[in-house]
Amino acid sequence: MFPPSNFAGNQGLCGAPLAACDRRSKWISDESSIGMAVGLVVGFVVAFYFPPCF
């Protein structure tokens, strides 16, 4: 319904009507992996030191 030029240039957008997706791309970037790890550690530390709050 829309021409492919309306969707071209959008980062991470692939598939019809654009080119196929690159299967080799990472689903989770290094930055988000670090953020998830830090959040997990902080959550455990807070839960350990403040158990009555949970």
Rank of each mutant, 00 (worst) to 15 (best):
A20P: 03
S29R: 11
V45M: 07
C53D: 14
I34D: 03
P3K: 03
P3F: 04
N10D: 05
V41K: 05
P51W: 06
G39D: 07
R24H: 10
F44E: 05
I34E: 02
I28A: 11
G39Y: 10
P3N: 04
V46H: 02
C53F: 15
P4S: 12
F48D: 02
K26C: 09
G43V: 02
A20Q: 00
F2L: 15
A8S: 13
F2K: 13
A20I: 03
L18E: 00
G9A: 02
A8Q: 11
F7P: 02
D22P: 04
F7A: 06
A47H: 11
A20V: 09
G15D: 12
S5N: 14
M1C: 09
I28Y: 11
V42L: 15
A37V: 02
M36G: 02
V42K: 09
E31V: 09
P17M: 03
S29E: 14
G12P: 05
G9I: 01
M36L: 15
N6W: 15
V41Q: 11
P51K: 12
G12F: 09
S5D: 08
F7V: 01
E31I: 08
G9F: 04
G9W: 03
P51F: 11
V41W: 07
V38D: 08
S25C: 08
F50M: 09
M36K: 03
A47S: 13
A37D: 14
G15F: 04
F2Y: 12
F54R: 05
S25E: 15
P52G: 06
S33W: 12
L18I: 07
V46R: 01
Q11E: 10
P52I: 12
F54N: 04
N6H: 14
L40S: 15
F7I: 01
F54H: 03
P51D: 07
